[in-house]
Amino acid sequence: MIPYPFTYHRATSLAQAQALLGGSADAKLLAGGQTLIAAMKMRLAQPSDLIDISAIKELSFIRAEKDAIVVGAGTKHFEVATSDAVTRAIPALAELAGSIGDPAVRHKGTLGGSLANNDPAADYPAAVLALGASVKTTKQTIAADDFFTGMFATALDDGEIVTGVSFPVPERAGYAKFPNPASRYAMVGVFVAKTKDGVRVAVTGAGPCVFRVPEMEAALAKSFTSEAIAGLAVDPSDLNSDIHGSSEYRAHLVTVMAGRAVAAASHG
């Protein structure tokens, strides 16, 4: 499959990337390309210019701070999955990164690319939302609760580039995913995090955009056990329904995966 023609640019600094992005109305950033290139091959996307930001060194880092792990937007899933710093502080985050796609995809795909694209079935949005992370951009810092605004939609403005994410270190966290047997994308993925401020539960794959489940959060704050949420279910009327599964099926999976995520967190 061959995409529409475009002009390729390789940026070596954020400033250069921003200048190139401002120079064309239909330019797109190219990070790992594991979603964008597939969409271009299907001719679902037709950027006039691609600005490759994968060579920008300042975007690729993992830094352990006192109460947080900070990951550069250009950091590959493979690097997060195998990072000692991430595994020590937030093992569920390393596990999540190691469950995205397959090894070859993880060698290319990036944190920033996943967040800026905000695919309804992407894994990272669940971790960012459940951990109450902050998304850093070239303009501002955006709280996770404000970042994901809808299907493939975020709070990012035109020309604004994600530079990194600060993940607060939780007391416990767990992620459980039911992958689609063919595509391996999350049919439902649930990330559960317990912090000193409470419990947050974020669901990906089930709806048009990652979302929290306040009823489960309240129940888990009282008792952080799978049993505490076994009787709670999300409303299927807001969930996706397609050839892979009905909304009722997905609603059922949310409770099951949330229970497994809590169990995984309890062992962590």
Binding site: Y8, G33, I37, A38, K41, A104, V105, H107, K108
Partner: peptide
């Protein structure tokens, strides 16, 4: 498959396995 699922196109770029159907040649410059 030409859709980055099957892995028949895996090559190594700078020592890491990647799917060469989901990368442009110019990216490998």
């Amino acid at each position: 498959c030409d859709t980055s699922q099957c892995g028949a196109c895996v090559v190594h770029v700078d020592g890491r396995a990647v799917k060469s159907c989901t990368m442009f040649a110019v990216q490998a410059a």
